[in-house]
Computed example of a mutant assay.
Amino acid sequence: MSGYGQFCAVARALDVLGERWTLLIVRELLLGAATFTDICHGLPRIPRATLSARLRTLRAAGIVDDGYRLTEAGTALAPVVRELARWAVATDSAALTDDHLDTAALTWDMRRRVDVGALPERTVVLAIEFTDRMPSDGNYWLHLSRASVNLCRQDTGAPVDVWLTAPTAAVTGWWLGDLSWEQLLRQPGVRVHGDRALRHRMHHWFKRYLFTPEALGVTDPGR
């Protein structure tokens, strides 16, 4: 027997959703992932074979269709994912640690949360350097325009308009809503430089993380 073998509805739900990575795959699809590669970008540590296996399980359960779209049963999990996030933010039981810091996942989330309506009329390039990481995991370039948003892990040679140089924990703290932009700029090792007008506006280019304490209605975060 591969499941819990219990009649309880919670146990039956966990028979489908309780394996590692499964709910995070649902999260990625809720956030707009439309391809296998999109999911991999959002979950950079998942083995591709594991992702394939979990997708088969979700399709067999009627949660994901033959493409990468959630069914009605899948979209019904949105409040479940939100409440899990709220619980994690509100309690010390799921406190953020250094093991949770992932520059690839962070920059991908920033990419998909760009507010294109807040961008300048011309294309701008934002370079992000995480000073506590090796170059292969510490340098990213966001090419931002109202027509498209692209995240690059290699320098394409396009002129950079704004540089953000900072430790991973500081940028993550800002993204999660633990730090305001002004507080981020006061953190040790944080520097923003480049075009003066653009660097003063760049934090408005992002809608921010979907599950900030403010968005979840948590007034006293456990972190």
Rank of each mutant, 00 (worst) to 15 (best):
M1D: 14
G3P: 14
Y4E: 08
Q6W: 13
Q6S: 13
Q6A: 15
R12H: 14
D15I: 09
V16P: 05
V16N: 07
L17S: 10
E19L: 11
R20P: 11
T22V: 15
L23Y: 08
L23S: 11
L24T: 13
L24C: 12
E28R: 07
L31P: 04
A33E: 00
A33S: 11
F36T: 09
D38S: 02
I39A: 00
C40N: 00
H41N: 14
G42I: 10
G42K: 03
P47R: 04
L51V: 10
L51N: 02
S52Y: 10
R54H: 10
L55S: 01
L55D: 05
L58P: 13
A60K: 10
A60V: 07
V64Y: 04
D65P: 05
T71K: 00
T71E: 05
E72I: 11
A73W: 03
G74N: 06
A76N: 04
A76V: 02
V80D: 11
W87K: 10
A90V: 06
D92K: 15
S93N: 10
A94I: 08
A94H: 10
A95D: 08
D98F: 11
D102V: 13
A105H: 06
A105L: 12
L106G: 03
T107I: 06
W108Q: 02
R111P: 00
R112V: 15
R112A: 05
R112S: 06
R113G: 00
V114G: 03
V116P: 07
V116D: 08
L119K: 06
P120G: 09
E121C: 02
R122N: 03
R122I: 02
T123W: 02
V124Q: 06
L126N: 08
A127K: 10
A127Y: 09
E129S: 00
T131V: 09
D132Q: 05
M134Q: 06
M134R: 09
M134S: 12
S136R: 11
D137A: 13
N139S: 10
Y140A: 06
W141P: 07
L142P: 01
H143E: 11
R146I: 01
R146D: 05
R146N: 06
A147G: 04
S148Q: 12
S148K: 13
S148N: 10
N150Q: 01
L151P: 03
R153V: 12
A158M: 13
D161L: 05
D161N: 10
V162E: 15
W163N: 14
T165I: 12
A166G: 11
P167T: 05
P167W: 01
P167H: 07
V171Y: 01
V171W: 12
V171G: 02
W175P: 05
S180V: 09
Q183G: 15
L184E: 04
L185S: 06
L185M: 15
R191F: 03
V192W: 01
H193D: 05
D195Q: 01
R199W: 06
R199S: 07
R199V: 02
R199P: 01
M202P: 05
M202Y: 02
H203T: 04
H204V: 03
W205L: 01
K207A: 14
K207L: 07
Y209V: 01
F211D: 14
T212V: 06
E214P: 07
D220P: 08
D220G: 08
R223M: 09
R223G: 12
